[in-house]
Design a protein around this nucleic acid. Structure first.
Lengths: 343, 343
DNA sequence: ATGAAAGCGCTAACAC
DNA sequence: GTGTTAGCGCTTTCAT
């Protein structure tokens, strides 16, 4: 139940309103407002008095009311494809922390890997946020461009002409994975596709193929598979049938699924098949064998996305599609799931 | 950049406003408003006309403005202690999904296991939400009671006199763990404490002690430890020194840490030491050995918390501190980290 | 340096 | 049934 404070009128709101403070400090509401938004315009003593009164009454400006007039809400939205993939909580953690530092609150939504829902969520959010960070969007470029037109939008791990984005160097990570495998002596390796609409998947696949060819590897493309542990279970059998000695999975969840299924089928990892993932989720180091994986700076990307949204970095990254510039570095973490192929 | 639409006035807002729709449908703004909030009061054809116009213009009511007058924001807040603990993304996923179903948006904040921050976050949120779900709060009962006084609050895994809560049956889970260990033949087992301010920890500890005694077990209490993998690393050595044959950890993260450290010290799990966790996070089934753990219905609890907030369940759970009623059931999942003690 | 008044987009009384 | 009026809590010209 709201607790009334001073007002003689409707007794509407939780805690004090600007009028209460004004009265207590013997000034007009405008002055109180200024004390918060343009303190330098007030005489020092008035400011003190107002601030003191505000503090005593526990007054905090109503952001909704303020937003109505300023056009800024003080909120930002973050949309992720699946909270159950540990990579996104990491991004979210970074984003939320950074948002808070710049005095923003964050709206969260889980798009459940569904492009339709994604768009719906973004539209529902648009009215109440100053901008949204959209992670690994599965929506079409056209739709996103439209949205970016009337909503401040920052893409994370997705790049579209003219829309600001924070991306990670997927192809570079893929290169490192391929080089590692080649050095180990592998000659035939599978790439396990993630969602067809995933931009990250494209980059990873491209990296694997390009650098695989450059290193004389046979690259077998399998999938697409759901980007989940279950997807990996599925992929394992296909990989075995494809007669490869190593597998690069779309992400860690899939890689972990592959390892699990391989184990069930008594195929040794890494003796019989090497496995590499992407993301470096916490599980990756706990699995047995510990997973060799391309580490992505999720939390950092989350923070950066907020900065971009804040315009602190602004259009630095707003270049056209093409050679990826400004991509966050990725790095291969070699653990125990990779080894030379059985000769 | 906001895109202007119809207004002759200030060109303020993204997309259409109520006046634009009113004009397009040849009705007054009130009628448009009613078409959305009390459709049955309008003549069918007017309603159609208005809705059509609204759809064509892509109009959606500004929730901030609406909230200003109705006193309802359509937002709910969720605060978790640590997004990096996979248990909370699960809760969050449930809460967000359920919130969406009832047309609420969710504000998210990560309290970083800090009671001070928690309170600060809740206060900052209070103005812009209709209620908040506070997960595993570490704040004091007094502070929380105060907050519950002027903010609709639902506690999750925390019980305080007079504050609605969704809780899980920690003691019951602990009982199952103890019974399992006793049946296996263990006689001396350690309980690894989580945060001292954690309500869940209290329940688990109490369950272990009570039922341990009832089953003639020696219970050694160790800790508290941070509720993380690192905390488990720490706890493992102390457990070894305590000369127990089994360990019940505060949560899965800690249990996993224990297993990892034990492995490093060449202590076999489960041959030398059995390990049980709480939560059943996804990692639990992937670890080697797979972790025996008390499964908690996190996602379900998240959904339920929203329902309670919605008043759909209302004060059903609002009973006094004491015998826990309405606690969500927990169940022991036996996997490979428990076995009879070395004789 | 401060106050008065207008109004953000919407809904809720109250007319008609 | 539908329009008119007032006003949510705040900021912002415009006076003074």
């Amino acid at each position: 139940m709201p607790r009334e404070v001073g007002g003689r009128r409707g007794e509407c709101c939780v805690s004090a309103m600007i009028r209460d403070v004004a009265k207590a400090a013997n000034v007009s509401p405008s002055t109180v407002s200024r004390a918060f938004t343009m303190p330098e315009l007030l005489r020092a003593d008035t400011r003190e008095r107002v601030l003191a009164a505000a503090a005593k009454l526990g007054y905090q400006p109503n952001r909704a009311a303020r937003g109505l007039i300023t056009g800024r809400t003080g909120n930002i939205g973050v949309i992720v494809p699946d909270l159950a993939n540990p990579f996104y909580p990491a991004v979210l953690k970074g984003a939320q922390a950074r948002a808070r530092e710049s005095d923003y609150s964050v709206f969260l939504a889980d798009a459940e890997e569904d492009p339709g829902l994604e768009v719906e969520l973004i539209k529902a959010m648009a009215k109440q946020v100053d901008g949204v960070v959209l992670c690994s969007s599965r929506a079409s470029a056209g739709v996103l461009t439209d949205i970016a037109n009337d909503t401040a939008l920052v893409l994370l791990n997705r790049r579209i002409s003219g829309v600001p984005a924070v991306v990670m160097d997927n192809a570079g990570g893929a290169r490192q994975a391929v080089v590692h495998l080649a050095a180990l002596g592998h000659r035939r390796v599978a790439y396990l596709d993630g969602p067809a609409s995933s931009w990250s998947n494209k980059g990873r696949r491209r990296g694997v193929k390009t650098h695989g060819a450059a290193h004389g590897l046979d690259i077998v493309e399998l999938g697409p598979f759901p980007p989940t542990f279950e997807g990996g279970l599925l992929a394992a059998d296909l990989s075995l049938a494809a007669n490869v000695t190593a597998v690069i999975a779309y992400n860690d969840l899939v890689a972990l699924g592959v390892i699990s299924r391989l184990k069930d089928r008594s195929v040794g990892v890494p003796e019989d098949v090497s496995v590499i993932g992407f993301d470096d989720i916490p599980m990756a180091q706990m699995s047995v064998p510990a997973l060799t994986t391309v580490s992505l700076p999720g939390e950092r990307a989350g923070r950066l996305a907020i900065d971009v949204l804040n315009g602190e970095i602004g259009n630095r990254l707003r270049d056209e599609e093409g050679p990826v510039r400004g991509a966050l570095p990725t790095s291969l973490i070699v653990r125990s799931s990779t080894a030379p192929p059985r000769s």
